[in-house]
C-alpha cells in the first residue's frame, strides 16, 4: 500500500517529498484538535472503571448470562471492550490463564474480541475531529451491532469449537 502510493506519485512526476511533508504537516493540527475529545473520553472511562460500577454490573449480569448460556467468563470482557482496547487484551489474557488457552470460554472470548471494536473511543475520536456534537442514532446502532456480534461470537464458537 505504501509502495503503491509512492510509485504512483513518482510515475506521475510529482514532487513526492514536498507532497509528503505537506500531508504530514496536517497531522499535528489534527492531533491537537482531537486531543481534548480523547482526554475527555479517556478520563471518563478511567474514572468509570475505578469507581467499581463495573464490578457491580458484572455481578448483576453474571446470572443473566448463565441463563442465556453465555459463558460467564465473557461478561467482563463484553462490558469493557467497547471502552478500551488494552483493557480488552488484558482481560483476554486473564481468561486464557484461568480457563486454559484451548478451553471453550477462551475460544469464544478470542472470537468476541476479534470481532468487536472500542466503540466509545472511535465515536468520540471521529466525531470530535470534525466537530459534530449531535451523534443521533450512532451509539444505539453501534451497541446493537456489538450485542449482535457477541451473540454471533458465542454461537459461531460453539459451531467451530472442537
Amino acid at each position: 500500500m505504501m509502495l503503491s502510493f509512492l510509485l504512483y506519485g513518482m510515475v506521475k512526476g510529482e514532487d513526492i517529498y514536498g507532497a509528503f511533508a505537506r500531508g504530514a504537516g496536517k497531522a499535528f493540527p489534527l492531533i491537537a484538535r482531537i486531543l481534548p475529545y480523547m482526554a475527555a473520553m479517556m478520563m471518563a472511562i478511567s474514572g468509570f472503571r475505578a469507581c467499581g460500577a463495573m464490578d457491580f454490573l458484572n455481578a448483576r449480569l453474571a446470572p443473566l448470562a448463565s441463563a442465556l448460556r453465555f459463558p460467564r467468563e465473557l461478561v467482563p470482557l463484553f462490558l469493557l471492550r467497547p471502552f478500551s482496547g488494552s483493557a480488552g487484551m488484558a482481560l483476554l489474557a486473564d481468561v486464557y490463564e484461568t480457563a486454559g488457552v484451548d478451553a471453550f470460554p477462551s475460544f469464544a472470548a478470542s472470537v468476541m474480541l476479534g470481532s468487536s471494536e472500542t466503540i466509545f473511543y472511535t465515536i468520540a475520536l471521529y466525531f470530535g475531529a470534525v466537530g459534530v456534537k449531535k451523534t443521533r442514532y450512532t451509539l444505539p446502532a453501534a451497541l446493537f451491532s456489538m450485542l449482535a456480534g457477541a451473540a454471533a461470537s458465542v454461537w459461531l464458537s460453539a459451531l467451530y469449537y472442537k
Binding site: 505504501m2 502510493f5 504512483y8 506519485g9 506521475k12 509528503f20 505537506r22 504530514a24
Partner: peptide
Amino acid sequence: WMGLMNVAEEAGM
C-alpha cells in the same frame, strides 16, 4: 499515513 496519502492525493490517485 497522512503524508503518504497526500502524495497519492496530489498525484491524482
